[in-house]
Simulated scan of single mutants.
Amino acid sequence: MNYLDCAKEYLMNTYNHLPVVFTHGKGCKVYDTSDKEYLDFTSGIGVMSLGYGNENWIKAVENQLEKIPHTSNIFLNIPVLELAKKFTELSKMSKVFFCNSGAEANEGAIKLARKYSFDKYGKGRSTIITLNKSFHGRTITTLEATGQEKFHNYFYPFTEGFKYTDVDVKSLEDTIDSTCCAIMIEAVQGEGGVNPLSKEFVNKVFEIAEKNDILVICDEVQCGIGRTGKMYGFNNYDVHPDIISTAKALGGGLPMGAVLCNEKLKDTFKYGDHGSTFGGNPVCTAGAIEVLNTISKEGFLDKVSDKGQFIKEYFKNKSSKNVVEVRGIGLMIGVEIKGESSKVQKKVLEKGLLVLTAGPNVIRLLPPLVISEEELEKGLNILYEVIESM
């Protein structure tokens, strides 16, 4: 079978596939149909935080598969209860709703914020402010929540009720009005270029929100679950939101998302207000428990921070003529270059390295959190060589 021809024949044209088909992986490496080895600096866009073939994760998932793979949410199952307790305690939140993806988590967060405001203030207070360069998902509503005009096309009409602000205090203040019920931020804007927010701006968001009874939603879909060296990206700013949306790394490779809320919002949703057929699936939750068990071990997240610093020091010591800036937190790093990021991505692929892009001139690095410094250096050498040869 010619796999690429098969993809063109049967898959919708939603992804511009790179010319490789993977069959298996181990640790921080994956292998294609010819058994060529690749070092993975993408972790499936931040999903495979424990790498490939993690024995404890596999065992947890297999054990649950043998017991019961799915139940309706009319009934309870043991893994979802264990995960709910562990997750809310680690997150310092009151309650959680489980779903399947980041977009679904953000939809739930939006609904929760609007329901809270409607219950307290009635109609007319439903606007959610998001940031320019943000990304919140691919559904009709989360596309409109995304502060990038290139996504606002073709699919009209979009869900109304969103306003956008620059990452600037004055712009934020000018955007606030009496219709606002929530402000939605990413601590690090992944798809928008790997842009960490400034502490000044984040503090102002929370100050304005508290003054006006506006909720703060932290979209932690990409920068959460240990990615920045903290449980959540916002933990780097000494703040705590009303709502957290998260996904990607939570399931360790299985589709898993969640919306967490604080004490103020814990009883906002009533029976029938929200739901998800596969949300809290026993197999996915079993995998998620193992992910949380691993990243909550003493010293694990400190090592993630150290590895992020290792990447920054690498480029600092190299003094590259084609690197404009290296930014990010933990193992969520953006390398802005003088050139096309897509060309670099294809070149390093040929040399056995997987990287992501975040716009036309930013290479995005999201390696598994368990990667070693030796593996980091090996991959960075490949990346540096290609960037310098441009």
Rank of each mutant, 00 (worst) to 15 (best):
N361M: 07
K316P: 00
K343A: 14
V355C: 10
I333G: 00
I337R: 01
G308I: 00
G359Y: 11
P360K: 13
K316V: 00
V304N: 05
Q345H: 04
N293G: 09
L292M: 15
K303V: 09
S341A: 15
V348I: 04
I363N: 10
V355Q: 01
E298T: 10
K312G: 07
Y314V: 02
K303I: 13
E375P: 05
G359H: 09
N293I: 03
F300K: 06
Q309C: 03
L365M: 15
D306K: 12
F300E: 06
K318M: 08
F300H: 06
R364I: 07
E340V: 05
E313M: 10
V370P: 02
V323Q: 04
E375S: 12
S372H: 02
E298M: 04
K321E: 14
T357K: 14
N293V: 08
K303Q: 14
I371E: 05
E373G: 02
V323C: 08
I295P: 01
D302L: 09
K303N: 13
I311Y: 07
F310R: 10
E313Y: 09
D306V: 07
V362F: 08
G308E: 01
K346S: 13
Q345D: 00
F310H: 15
K351C: 03
T294H: 10
T357R: 15
V323S: 03
G299L: 04
F300W: 03
E336A: 13
K321N: 15
E350P: 02
L331N: 09
M332K: 02
F300S: 04
G299T: 04
N322V: 11
P368T: 13
L301A: 08
T357N: 15
V324A: 06
D302V: 05
E313W: 03
Q309G: 01
E325K: 15
A358R: 01
S296L: 11
K343F: 12
P367H: 14
T294S: 14
M332N: 05
R364N: 06
G308C: 06
V344G: 11
E375L: 07
P368L: 13
P360Y: 13
K338M: 13
E298K: 14
K312D: 01
E350R: 10
K312C: 06
T294G: 09
L349F: 13
L292Y: 07
V304D: 02
T294M: 05
P360Q: 09
V355L: 03
V335Q: 03
L292R: 06
M332P: 01
P360G: 14
K347I: 00
G308S: 07
L353T: 11
K303A: 12
V344E: 11
G359K: 05
D306T: 03
N293M: 01
L331E: 04
V370T: 15
